[in-house]
Amino acid sequence: MTAVRCVDLSKTYRQGDQEIRALDHVSIDIDAGDFVCLSAPSGGGKTTLLNAIGGLDRPDSGEIYIAGERIDTLSKAELAELRLHRIGFVFQAYNLIPVLTARENVEFVMQVQGVGPAERRRQAEQILEEVGLEGMGERRPAEMSGGQQQRVAVARAIVSKPALVLADEPTANLDSTTSDELIDLFTRLNRHHGTTFIIATHDRRVMGYARRLVKMLDGRIVDDIRQHAA
């Protein structure tokens, strides 16, 4: 089953007088349960593609389908619903909400979804345990290390069991040990929950874990490799 289908996506930005072609007729199909790395040098288009798939950005042309549903024509409110219920996000800079504790950050998406307090708490504690943060739920982000914060962000992304998790440079701010632990966590979640992961990165260690490596350059897919994960 196809989790994500992009058909002939193009996107152009203007930066001053310069026109930057972030996506140049990109087409790609990603299977459900796959673990895909988008790799590209800075400005290569991987974040733009990730944002377009996540409904955060609209392509100038082309079509995007998530689980068979076309999303590039949805309204802002419909896209918000899509992100809330079907997509999990992990950002480079963790982007936790500083006034909420780790558990509350994890509960945030469920709370917006309307899940009841007891169920929210149960699921949040369970997922925090799963990402190795048992007993740290009442800490605020400022009281946690970068690796711990990123684990909370991962827990927040997967707690409501989205079909698709999009991660943009998730290891960029982490040391190598913490990066390995995080990728190990991603692969475990991918295996156990069947969640589709699409990770934009230029971290070679992360690429080594991916079952599929998609290389981009100047907004185009230049290589698409199936590989045995590490």
Partner: peptide, 16 residues
């Protein structure tokens, strides 16, 4: 601003 962006990205509606 960034937190508000994150909340919107995670699916919180502008009205919230």
């Amino acid at each position: 601003v960034r937190e508000i962006g994150v909340m919107l990205a995670l699916g919180m509606r502008p009205s919230a």
